[in-house]
Design a protein around this nucleic acid. Structure first.
Length: 236
DNA sequence: GAACGGATTTTCT
DNA sequence: GAAAATCCGTTCC
């Protein structure tokens, strides 16, 4: 890499690694609000015995620590969120709603619990495998299994995990390790800041106004769900 | 095309 | 005991 003079203008992100290469750990050693827009366009790849599935990330949310009531780490460390308190570049995988898995990428050094939730992506490798997992993975006893559209394979945080076979076994996985089955790779082409939108997070009931959700403007794989539905108590 | 409610279990109060 | 960083099928425009 040749040395060159700096050009005018802001340069918040570290130098982008070569396209398709493993992201360096220092990429994640930054605040989640900086990492979140930076991972858009990057590729999450999971290699399993059934084959690889890779997804280009199109939608994410930042979750902070003590200042963020919507974050799992807001009330301190527990057995579930321990990975969020660990070092950067690891996967924090959690189970929710009795049936769904979601995956985050941990930011900042050990002891500072911030992370980026991966909310959606476009499957670029292993489409048939991803489709088979999504179709087989739906709740049994439910009506006719209709094949999901390709753009819906990883549209939503739980769908993304199902398509990629991410569950408890990947909690704590090092996504910066060359030998890891779960990795994050640099984008083929960087996403220009002008192509990134920003707004409130989805599905939370606290800190609902903070614009800590980032997505690629106009991308069809970005989730479009209602913000949050408060549950009424079951009748007696 | 948008809106609603059920499913299901882990986790923490 | 209640809520949860959700998804899916049904119902009603």
């Amino acid at each position: 890499m040749g040395r060159r003079l700096t050009v005018p203008g802001p340069e918040p992100a570290p130098a982008p690694p070569s396209a398709g290469g493993l992201l360096p750990r220092e990429f994640f050693d930054r605040p989640a609000l900086d990492v979140a827009p930076g991972v858009l366009g990057c590729v999450l790849r999971h290699e399993t015995d059934d084959g690889p599935v890779a997804v280009t990330i199109t939608e994410v949310e930042a979750y902070l620590g003590a200042v963020d009531p919507a974050s799992h780490s807001f009330r301190g460390r527990t057995a579930r969120n321990a990975v969020m308190f660990g070092g950067p570049g690891h996967a924090y995988v959690y189970f929710t709603y009795g049936m769904h898995w979601c995956v985050n990428l941990v930011c900042l050094p050990s002891g500072i619990p911030e992370a980026v939730l991966l909310r959606a992506g476009r499957v670029t490798e292993g489409v048939p495998l991803a489709a088979a997992r999504r179709q087989a993975g739906r709740a049994p006893g439910r009506a006719p299994a209709k094949a999901p559209a390709e753009r819906d394979l990883a549209r939503g945080p739980a769908r993304l995990c199902q398509a990629m076979a991410i569950d408890r076994a990947q909690d704590g996985a090092d996504v910066c390790d060359a030998g890891s089955p779960l990795q994050v790779l640099a984008p083929d082409g960087p996403v220009p800041p002008a192509a990134i939108s920003r707004g409130p997070r989805v599905g939370i009931s606290r800190a609902t106004e903070e614009p800590w959700r980032f997505w690629i403007t106009g991308d069809p794989t970005v989730s479009a769900y209602r913000p949050h539905m408060p549950k009424r108590r079951a009748p007696a």
